[in-house]
Simulated scan of single mutants.
Amino acid sequence: MDHLIEKSLLSIDLNNRIVMHNMIREMGENVIREEYANSRIWLPEEVSDLLKGKLVSNI
């Protein structure tokens, strides 16, 4: 974990919580979205489409 903090991929906030760099989080979301289509709803646009009936979810 120290190595990831050193590389600025993780940090510790003022409340002692581990915080992941946004780019790493987005990369993980993209991997999930590509491999497991519609298994998670991440983007506000996807939520809107789901509620409008334009997106089918496997949840």
Rank of each mutant, 00 (worst) to 15 (best):
M1F: 02
L4Y: 14
L4C: 05
E6G: 08
E6N: 12
S8K: 04
S8M: 01
L9R: 08
L10Y: 00
L10M: 09
I12K: 12
I12T: 11
D13M: 06
D13W: 04
D13L: 04
N16W: 08
R17V: 13
R17Y: 10
R17M: 13
I18W: 08
I18F: 03
V19G: 06
H21S: 12
N22P: 03
N22E: 13
M23P: 08
M23R: 10
I24H: 08
I24F: 06
R25K: 06
E26Y: 07
E26V: 06
E26C: 03
M27D: 02
M27S: 12
M27A: 07
N30E: 09
V31M: 03
I32M: 00
R33Y: 03
R33F: 04
E34G: 10
E35G: 14
E35H: 05
Y36D: 12
A37R: 04
N38G: 09
N38Q: 04
I41Y: 03
W42R: 04
L43C: 01
P44N: 00
P44I: 07
E45R: 13
E46V: 02
S48W: 14
D49T: 14
D49R: 08
D49L: 04
L51E: 07
L51H: 06
G53V: 03
G53A: 01
G53K: 02
K54A: 07
K54H: 11
V56M: 07
V56S: 15
S57L: 04
I59L: 05
I59N: 07
